[in-house]
Amino acid sequence: MAGQRNSKAVGVIRLVLAAAVTLLILFPVYWMVVSSLKTQSEMRLAVPTLWPEGFAWENYAEAFRVIPYARYFGNTLIMSVGLIILQLNVALWAAYAFAKGRFWGKELLFLLILAALIVPDQVTFIPIYVMMSNLSWLDTFWALIVPNGASAFGIFLLRQAFKSLNNDVLEAARVDGAGRFALIYKMLLPMALPTVVTLVVLIFISSWNSYFWPLIMTNSSDMRVLTIGIAFLRDSIAGDEAMYFHIIMAASVMAILPIIIVYSLMQKHIVAAMANSTFK
C-alpha cells in the first residue's frame, strides 16, 4: 500500500519536473512571440515584462513595410514547392528502380547514391556556383532547385518503404499490362503513402529553413528567401538594434508559422520516421 502511494508520488514529481523542462525548452519560442507583440519602449524596459502590456499587432504590418515580406514569403514558397516536386519525383523513380527494378550494377549504383549522404553542401558549392554562373542561372530559382534535385535521403527512405511491399500485387499489375509509371504512381505511391507524406514534409521543412544555399546562389534583393531576408533585415539596422527587435521578432514568428503548423499536424509521422530510418 505504502509502496503504491510512493510510486504515485514519484509519478507526480516526475510529471512536474517534465512539465518544467518542457516549458524551459518552449521558452525561446514563447519569448519570440511575446517580444513580437511589444512596443519599442516596452522592449527596453529595465525589468522585462513576461506578458505584453498590450498587443502591438502593428509590428506585423511594420515587418511587411520595412522589407518586401510578401515577396520573400512567395520566393520561399516557390523554392520549397519546386524542391518538393523535383525531389519527390526523382526519388520515387529511383526508389522504384532500386527496390523493384532489375538492371546491371544495381547494388553498386545504389552505393553511389548512399555515398552522397556523406558529402556536405560546403564541399561542392564552389564548382556549382561557377556552373550556375556559366549557365546564367545565378539569382534564379533554377540555381535554388535543380542542384538539389536528387535527395539521397529521400531515395533511401522510399526504397526502404517500397522494398517492404509485396511483389505479387505488382507482378499481377504488370501482367495486366500496367506500365512502370502506372506501377509507381498508382500502386507503389498509394501503398507507401505515409512514407511519401513524411518525405514531402521533411523536404518542405528543410527547404523552408535553408540558408547556406540561397545565400550563395542569389544576390539581388528580389530573389531573397525569408531566412536571408530576415538576416539582412537585422544587418541593415545601424546602431542600437534593440530599437527594431520587436519587428524582427514579428517577421520571425511569421516565418516559422508554416513550420509549426506542418510540424503539429505531422509530428507523429515525423517522429516515427526519425526513430526508424536513421538507425539502420
Binding site: T22, I25, P28, M43, N209, T227, F245, S252, I270, V271
Partner: peptide, 29 residues
C-alpha cells in the same frame, strides 16, 4: 505531447533561432 514540444526546435530555422537568442543575449536589454 511534451516530447513533441521538445523535438520542435529541431525543425525551427537556425536563422530564426539565432535571432531569438541574439535578443536574449543582448547586453543592455
Amino acid at each position: 505531447f511534451m516530447r513533441g514540444i521538445i523535438f520542435m526546435p529541431y525543425y525551427i530555422s537556425m536563422v530564426i533561432a539565432a535571432m531569438v537568442f541574439i535578443w536574449i543575449y543582448n547586453g543592455k536589454y
